[in-house]
Amino acid sequence: MSFIDAPMTPLDEVRKSPSRLRSLLSFLRKHPQAAIGFVILMLFVFIAIFGPYFAPYGEREQVGPIFGTPSSAHPLGLDDGGIDVLSLLIYGARVTLIVGFAGAVVAMLVGGSIGIISGYFGGKIDNALMRTTDYFLVLPDLVLMIVVASIWGRSLRNIIIIIGLIYWTFMARLIRAQVKVVRERAYVKRAQALGATHTRIIFRHVIPQIAPLLLAQTVLMVALAIFLETAISFLGLGDPSVASWGKMIETAFSRSAISYGAWWAIAPPGIAVALVIMAFNMVGTAAEDSLNPRLRVSHLARRHFRLRPLPDKEPPK
């Protein structure tokens, strides 16, 4: 047998293997909103990492009067302790982003594994896990936060756990549905027929297939986690020892920044939270769109085919 049923073009012609960087760039080019979100995110990540090196003042350093108005020395004014708001904002970026990422990662790990196990094995395991998920889904978030914070105390670690506890259910349901689809693919059946272990099939065939979705969802979840962190801190259930944006809003609020008319103590962290959430959302939804072509509706646009004259060299057919 030396017969080939289609002409083979040389490999380098059919595939100029795009580097990861290049495929990221082309993704950003196709989705301008993702590019904007990405730039904002990079900016905040930069601040979170290097902020302490260029923050004008210390995190706990009183540098002026209580609720001092914005000035050239303190562009965003001072807070209730006379601390520079711009510096606080810079320090807070790190905590907020860490909590956001860590919470989302916890949710992804817990929800992702439960979703994969549930979807892959199905049957009784699936039933048991999905029942459990349902119970968590109906637990009121607020009550859960208060209970965890009052039993285990107020700390950064506990906030991350709370975020994980609240959001893993979404991830689990979504991933389970996807895994159920992948599980029925013939190449998974083939691996089973070959005698591959479940671990092998899950790690070699299932996870790589759902990884992009997992990633896109995690990005979206970071936004939710940051939002939740802000809410938790605002309710006074956050870690009292670190400065997060939520904590800034909370202290400003509880120390009557509003009645002092000190808008600069509340607005900057609020805007920062909104910006970061928006940026994560922009990137996440664009990634989700490009993974899920069914969401595109352009083909519904009603346009008709065109007419054109016959080609000059009309073959006699």
Partner: peptide, 15 residues
């Protein structure tokens, strides 16, 4: 060994 019907489905697209 089992050979499957659908050659479009029976190969892992990432392999």
């Amino acid at each position: 060994q089992l050979i499957f019907q659908d050659p479009y489905e029976s190969l892992d697209p990432r392999f």
